[in-house]
Design a binder for these strands. Structure first.
Length: 857
RNA sequence: GCGAGAGUGGCGGAAUGGCAGACGCGCCGGACUUAGGAUCCGGUGGGCAACCAUGAGGGUUCAACUCCCUCCUCUCGCACCA
């Protein structure tokens, strides 16, 4: 009677596989349900975060299948990316080999977990069969003017002779490989996608998503897109030309007493040259270029700047104002230049104080300000002052009037500005999808003709530790004839950002083998949108916005169907575990610490730190394979779902896992021990009254609760609790009752319902026990049982009584007692009388079927 | 810094305006047993009590873990990690 997970799980995984149970045919024979989890990067092995997300997705997929849907539940590999190249650097393994080996290993791990995927739709994004289509999309985007080139600055390591990702730059601004080499900024021509063209639609789409997406994710996206309304205003240069700025406060232009420009702005050095200030300005610009971006946007950043030597004219006051280069102005936001209004912008105020610049108050709040005495900027609304014909107006009105004034004079215009920037997609990397363009000396940039796609990444390149991108060194690959003039030309050696691949993989799953076109629109129409998407909150802004953008673009090209790709989103929390640190040996893996909490290497007491996100670097990780081997996949799955609701962080606990294992063993023994009695029992569980009725009430109440928790609340931990309670209840049923014809039909029903409810959580165990009690087929293929409302309904209700806010009594009443009946029961209750005796009843609140609240004098 | 979250027994959590602590872990006790770190049964927030308890302080309400304000602590994201 012992619960042996290993044998059970192997047996059922094989059967599911042999019967191709989770294969999803293209043609629909039932309503469709597309359940998708964010696909993994093949980093080497599955980690607990994967176990969590795939378990959640599988629960939903299995539940919906039982609910009668035809479920599409695919998996694949987000297979291009930096870690493969880092591994190549460290171990000399070729990125392709490393990636494919990892995929094979991780596929096996996923199969061991018993996740119900349609493996026939699996693909890896690093294969030409996949990426050829995104090369095609890119050519379309060039034609549609959505992809364009622009200079942008990047992290550069002189030693590596290559561009570095932000994560490859150390905190002190040195290279992650060469910690003596400072990382510099270098300007390169890059490809950008015009995602900002869709900014308004991405924002408006939130209306459609509200309800299906967590509100906090929508909020984060809204802030990421960052729509702000204002005006673009031209500030003329004395020698001709102009500088355009964006401001949300056109009402304060009269107070603009200087201008600040991003140090990277090309005009900065131009002004400096003309004014003979080249040396000091260049020094400043180079210093700022070394500051990292996060620091540069923080409010406590020391505001620094330098006078460029140039001036421009405030278009309203007509005065010449100095132009500064300032570290807090960003080149890629707005126009890279801002008008500085020190009286009404805190950053400008700090800057003006530091460099003794003129402060001019042009908005007066209730309590009058003076530029001499103010200690911080006033950023609120007010009455306009010192503003020529606009003086005295309300500042809100002033925004509109001044914008109109500029529009009439043709030197400014109302403008909506987004914080969202166009998406830079060029990567100077080898392990990515080649950007399909050719650089010709004569014709410039020439897209690779569609008929020549795919541009295949040469996987047979010797991946050495040479400097720079190996692609650029592969002469035989880069040297091509220009498709336009035939002259010798060179392929682009940059590859796509890997977010490119993850922006449309969910569409390709619907049509993964199509060799003629990227996607079949009819299939898209049949299967999109994704009904449930599950993934980590860390993707709230980037991946999810890019994917929504791609989908809208493909819709505009007539390929995709609908406006939004993901109808519902569940963003699960992280998996955390306590860290353990040895005073001598640093972070310790759990298996490096003995039962007494001592380091197994040196015997020193290990310090237990607070729970943090599982990570290799802190060694606070649990290997899923070890877990599956010891307890089985069902235990791993059950614990992941039981330890916390999906959206919250989950604290890993070995003891908690034991508990989950124990519960499964308990359920196994309960059923296995009653196997004979249950299979012999009649299936006609009528309403016989007595104990049988009690059993049926518990069954149907549990079923109602579990169904609601899964389907509506997405709280799997409480669903499991309810199932546990039911098991506890069934343990108290006596031997005779399992045999008795009075009660055994109800108990048989209870066991069957129990196994069906367990099936999406612990599918192997459920199928095994289903077979044991002599039921046909498999539990996972049965329809989800329907709760009988008559049975589930309570016959008696408990009404609690509060007197002056304190709980004083409880009464039980018939479930359909009227308010009058309950009131009189309450008022006649001896405990209530004790507290109300001699007092006047000021108020009585009745919450139907729950509570009576009495207020006395 | 900006943005988004979280804070409840010894621990994970439950309760989304209506009995605070469901369920699980741990702990305590009992049964079975040659044995128990297996299994089964029971108990378990604090306080002798009145009562007190949901990070701290205030507010709204008949009623606040839940709503509002102020503060503290922690976590995640910030555009080349995926």
């Amino acid at each position: 009677m012992k619960y042996k997970a290993g044998a059970i799980e192997g047996k059922w995984q094989k059967r599911w596989d042999d019967e191709r149970l989770f294969r999803c045919p293209d043609d629909l024979s039932a309503p469709k349900y597309y359940c998708l989890e964010m696909f993994p990067y093949p980093s080497g092995r599955i980690h607990m975060g994967h176990v969590r997300v795939y378990t959640i997705g599988d629960l939903i997929a299995r539940f919906k299948r039982m609910r009668g849907y035809q479920v599409l539940h695919p998996i694949g590999w987000d297979a291009f990316g930096l870690p493969a190249e880092n591994a190549a650097h460290r171990h000399g393994t070729h990125p392709a080999k490393w990636t494919y080996e990892n995929i094979d290993f991780m596929r096996q791990q996923l199969k061991e977990l018993g996740i119900s995927y349609d493996w026939e739709r699996e693909f890896a994004t690093c294969t030409p069969d996949y990426y050829r289509w995104e090369q095609l999309f890119f050519l379309w985007m060039i034609k549609d003017g959505l992809a364009y080139r622009k200079r942008a600055s990047l992290n550069w390591c002189e030693e590596c002779q290559t561009v570095l990702a932000n994560e490859q730059v150390n905190r002190d601004g040195t290279c992650f490989i060469h910690d003596q080499t400072p990382v510099t900024q270098r300007e390169l021509d890059q490809w950008f996608l015009g995602i900002t063209k869709y900014a308004d639609e991405l924002l408006a789409g939130h209306e459609e998503l509200r309800g299906g997406w967590p509100e906090n994710i929508l909020e984060m996206q809204k802030n990421w897109i960052g729509r702000s309304e204002g005006a673009e205003i031209d500030f003329p240069l004395p020698g001709g030309g102009k500088i355009t700025v964006f401001t949300t406060r056109p009402d304060t232009v009269y107070g603009a007493t200087f201008m600040s420009m991003a140090p990277e702005h090309p005009l900065v050095m131009e002004f400096a040259r003309k004014a003979g200030r080249e040396k000091e300005v260049r020094e400043f610009v180079e210093r700022v270029a070394r500051q990292d971006r996060i620091a540069r946007t923080s409010e406590d950043l020391e505001k620094e700047g330098i006078f460029t030597g140039g001036h421009c004219v405030n278009p309203l006051t007509g005065k010449e104002i100095p132009i500064f280069a300032a570290n807090f102005v960003l080149y890629d936001y707005g126009t890279g230049a801002v008008m500085a209004v020190p009286a009404h912008d805190q950053r400008d105020f700090e800057f003006a104080k530091k460099y003794r610049l003129h402060v001019e108050v042009v908005i007066q709040p209730e309590e009058e300000l003076s530029s001499e005495t103010m200690t911080c900027a006033y950023e609120g609304p007010g009455r306009m002052a010192g503003s020529g014909p606009f003086t005295g107006k309300d500042s809100e009105e002033g925004k509109r009037d001044i914008t109109r004034h500029f529009e009439e004079k043709g030197i400014g215009r109302g403008k909506v500005q987004y914080r969202l920037r166009d998406w830079g997609i060029s990567r100077q990397r080898y392990w990515g999808c080649p950007i399909p363009v050719i650089h010709c000396r004569k014709c410039g940039i020439v897209p690779v003709p569609e008929k020549d796609l795919p541009v295949v990444l040469p996987e047979d390149l010797p991946y050495t530790r040479e400097k720079g991108n190996p692609l650029a060194l592969a002469d035989s690959w880069t040297r091509v004839a220009c498709p336009s003039c035939g002259a010798q030309a060179r392929r682009e050696t940059d590859t796509f950002d890997t977010f490119f691949e993850s922006s449309w993989y969910f569409l390709r799953y619907i049509d993964p083998k199509n060799g003629l076109e990227p996607l079949d629109p009819a299939k898209m129409k049949a299967w999109m949108p994704v009904d449930q998407y599950v993934g980590g909150v860390e993707h709230a802004c980037m991946h999810l916005i890019y994917a929504r953008f791609f989908h809208k673009y493909l819709r505009d090209r007539g390929l995709a169907h609908g406006n939004e790709p993901f109808q519902r989103l569940l963003s699960q929390g992280m998996v955390c575990m306590a860290t353990q640190e040895c005073p001598k040996h640093g972070w310790r893996y759990p298996e490096e610490v003995d039962a007494a909490g001592m380091c197994m290497q040196c015997g020193e007491k290990v310090a237990v730190g607070r729970s943090m996100k599982m990570s290799k670097s802190k060694r606070n990780v649990v290997e899923p394979s070890a877990l599956v081997e010891r307890y089985g996949a069902d235990t791993a799955r059950l614990f992941s779902l039981f330890a916390a609701p999906p959206e919250k962080d989950l604290d890993w606990s070995e003891q908690g896992v034991e508990g989950a294992f124990r519960f499964l063993g308990r359920a196994y023994r309960l059923v296995a021990q009653r196997q004979k009695a249950v299979s012999a029992a009649s299936r006609q569980a009528g309403d016989s009254g007595g104990k049988g009725r009690r059993v049926r009430q518990v069954t149907h109440r549990t079923l109602r609760k579990v169904t609601g928790d899964i389907e509506e609340r997405y709280h799997y931990n409480t669903a499991i609790s309810a199932i546990m309670e039911m098991v506890n209840f069934l343990y108290l049923v006596e031997d005779g009752e399992w045999e008795s014809p009075e009660t055994s039909p109800a108990l048989r029903e209870a066991v069957e319902v129990l196994l069906l409810m367990l099936s999406p959580f612990a599918p192997h165990l459920a199928d095994e026990l289903w077979e044991k009690i002599g039921c046909e087929g498999m539990a996972c293929r049965q329809p989800w049982p329907e709760a009988d409302d008559d049975m589930a309904r309570a016959e008696e209700i408990l009404v609690v009584v509060q007197i002056n806010g304190k709980l004083r009594s409880r009464i039980t009443a018939d479930a359909d007692a009227t308010e009058e009946e309950i009131r009189s029961m309450v008022l006649n209750d001896p405990r209530v009388r004790e507290y109300t005796e001699g007092k006047t009843l000021k108020k009585l609140v009745y919450v139907p079927r729950k509570l009576v609240s009495i207020v006395t004098s």
